[in-house]
Computed example of a mutant assay.
Amino acid sequence: MSQHPNHQMDDQLLAKYLSGDATPEEAIQVNDWLRLPGNMEQFRQSAYIWAQMEGDPVHQLPDQNNSWQNIKLAMQAPVSIPLQPGKHNRWRFAIAASVLVVMLSGIYFLFFQPTQRIADYEVKKNTLTAENRVLRDTLPDGSRVVLNSFSAIEYSLDFPKSGRNLGLHGEAWFDITPGPSDPFTIFAGDVTVKVLGTSFNVRETPDSVLVTLQSGSVRMCRDRDSITLQPGELGIYDIRNRHFEIIRSADPNQTGYATRIFDFKDESLREIASQIEKAYDIKIVFNNQALADCTMSSTFNNESLDYIMNVIAVTLNITFRTENKTVYLSGKSCE
C-alpha cells in the first residue's frame, strides 16, 4: 500500500481483494487501508463498478473527470433558439428547458445514481441479532459465535469466500475455526481484532472495546497502534484517550454467558442467579426474597444446569424446583 499522504490504494490490489484472489496479507493490507479517513468512499465506488463488470479480467476505474468535463462543455455550448414575438415563444422555452434537463440527468446518472447502487450493493449482507436473550449460532466457515443480549454481527453474503470479515455491535464470544491462510477479522467500533484460530470475547461499549482471550492469540489494532493478547488476558481500548491496555488476569465471569465457566468468590446469590439465567436461558425466581442476599463461593466449568442448582442448594441449605424454563428457590434467609 502506498504511503503517500492521500493514502492511495493500488488498483490491482483492490481488484484482487474484490475478486477474492487477495492473499491473507493483502486482505489485511486492504482492511487496514479502509480504516483510514476518506478511503471507504473510494472502496464503495470500486465495489459498485466491480459488481457491474464481474467476469471482466481487467479492473479499471472509470474516468469521471473526463465525463464531467464533457458535460460541462455541453452545458457551455451555446444553444441558439431565436425568440420571436408571439405565441410560439413558450414551446421554444420548453425546448431549451428540455436540453438542460437532459444535461442535468446525465450529471445525476454519473455522480448520484451510482451512489444509490453502491448502497444497494452494500446492504446485501447477513445480520445476526440477539434481542433480550443470548443467541448461539455457527458461521458459514464453521466458527461458533455466542451473541450476548442486544448485540448483533454483520457479514457479507459470500462469507467466507470474500474473506472472513464481520462487524460487531455489542458483545460476542467467538470460537474461530483455524485458517492459517485465511485470517478472521472483526471490526468493533474503532478497533480491529485479527486472529487465525482461537476463542475469545469482544465487547464494544460507547467508551471502550474489550477483548478477553481464552485460547490462541489475537491482535487488537487501531491505525498503527496495536497490542497482542495471550490466553487469560484482557485487552482494553479506551476510545476517548485512544489508548490500549492489557490486564494480565481476566475475570472469567465476564464471559460466562458464553462459556458457562464461572469462578464465584463470596458472590451474592442475586448476582449468581443473574449470570446463570443468561448463560442457560432460564428464569430464576426467589420464593423468599431474602435468599438473594445469601453469598457463596464456587467454581463451575461448563456444568449442567441441574448440577449447578444442586451445588447451590447444598451449599446454602435451600431447595429448588424446576418447571419448564423456570427455577424456583425456597428456604430460610442466610444470617
Rank of each mutant, 00 (worst) to 15 (best):
D32L: 07
R164H: 00
L110K: 03
L147R: 02
D10W: 01
D293N: 13
E41N: 12
T295I: 01
V79N: 10
L316I: 06
Q52T: 09
D32I: 02
C334R: 03
N310D: 15
C294M: 05
A27N: 13
F93G: 13
D266Q: 07
G86E: 03
D306H: 12
V146T: 14
S330Q: 15
F93W: 10
A27H: 12
I312G: 03
T192C: 00
Q64F: 10
P183G: 00
A279M: 09
E303I: 00
Q8V: 14
L210F: 12
D190T: 09
N6W: 05
L73F: 00
N31S: 11
L100T: 08
V209F: 10
G20R: 04
H7C: 06
D266G: 09
D21F: 07
G55D: 09
N65H: 04
T315V: 09
R224K: 11
F244P: 08
G20A: 03
H169N: 14
E267R: 11
E171K: 06
V218T: 13
T299K: 13
L36D: 04
L168M: 05
N132E: 06
D190W: 04
Q42N: 15
F174W: 02
I272C: 04
A152H: 05
P37K: 05
Q52A: 05
F93Y: 11
A15S: 14
P114N: 06
N148A: 12
S105Q: 01
A77M: 03
I272Y: 06
N132R: 11
V311Q: 08
M103P: 02
L329K: 01
A172W: 01
T259C: 09
T115N: 15
M40W: 13
I272V: 15
T319N: 15
